[in-house]
Design a protein around this nucleic acid. Structure first.
Lengths: 174, 174
DNA sequence: TTTTGTGCAAACTTTTTGCAGATTG
DNA sequence: CAATCTGCAAAAAGTTTGCACAAAA
């Protein structure tokens, strides 16, 4: 989309160090999980790191240049990345998935998504009530929200084989 | 599903007053919105009021006896009910929608959904962090969560025709 | 009687699966 | 070389739409 930065500064086009380390950390994570660091995976991670807001799979695939890898691969990679805690999934109002890179350093934030244009903006999190009050002040109308927690219940831990995932995925709340 | 209560107490089979008033309030709401109070709508509302936990559309349709109304009607009714604020939608970990009756009297609560069996339990809401800590103590593992706010952004309010909905849907945060 | 809702069939969108060939470590 | 990924094709889920008939006000 955005053509490479138009300056001819020596660092033009070279991603900031933080992006590199994010990517590297992610690759380490992949190897830890005995997963391979492939070209599609790298491009997907790069694209996610570049972005600041959550993005749909379709759109991500498009950003990737379409030809660089198959849509199915994007689905598979994101599912894997989510299991590893490398990305976070959220939802649009219609239930379609959105993904964003889970920056290890940054504290977790949340989003407002416009029900009409679908654009999302990050927002600081205080409390549900404070949040909606603040969004009203920002000019949003017809506010609603969902808060959902997922986990594996005690019963299923006993019965299901439960593919044990890498380190705690739940570490996001640490 | 559950055959009429097996006792022969005079009140057997008669729903508690609260259910009735919930249903009545909902019907008033429908009429306010110039919507008709039809048999399918009543059964859907009844089924939702009976339930305590969020339910998928498929499952709701099943609870309804399948034959009592078409699956498409369930979709349409729930979408309409959501617009009116009569029900709340949430999501399973895979993105499929879940609905629950928005009891006007009760304060809003949230859920934990098991990633394996999908069962949901209501939980008191404190804060995201406290929530996950508490769920860990309850024996849940591999916790994750989503918090998403939806609304109509200032820009779209100017451009889009924006079918003006009934009283504030957003009143849930009042 | 007019307006609104429903059922049915079919389309669509999003996501998942199977498998052979390509790629990584 | 062995294990793991990817692409392609096809299927499965979940959800939406169009239209004629049915039901509610």
């Amino acid at each position: 989309m955005i053509a490479a930065t138009q300056s001819n500064h020596p660092l033009a086009g070279i991603p900031p160090k933080s992006e590199v380390s994010n990517l590297e950390a992610a690759c380490v994570r992949l190897r830890q999980a005995q997963m391979r660091v492939t070209k599609p995976r790298i491009s997907i991670l790069e694209a996610l790191i570049r972005r600041e807001t959550p993005i749909s799979i379709e759109q991500l695939h498009h950003d990737l240049n379409e030809s660089s890898c198959d849509l199915v691969t994007v689905y598979r990679c994101l599912a894997a990345f989510e299991e590893l805690g490398l990305v976070r999934r959220s939802f649009q109002h219609n239930g379609t998935g959105l993904y964003e890179f889970a920056h290890a350093s940054r504290s977790r934030h949340y989003h407002v998504l416009c029900k009409v244009c679908g654009k999302s903006e990050p927002v600081e999190y205080f409390s549900v009530e404070g949040m909606e009050r603040m969004l009203t002040e920002r000019g949003f109308t017809q506010l609603s929200h969902i808060v959902e927690f997922f986990g594996i219940c005690p019963t299923c831990q006993l019965t299901a084989p439960a593919r044990q995932n890498s380190p705690t995925i739940s570490s996001e709340s640490a």
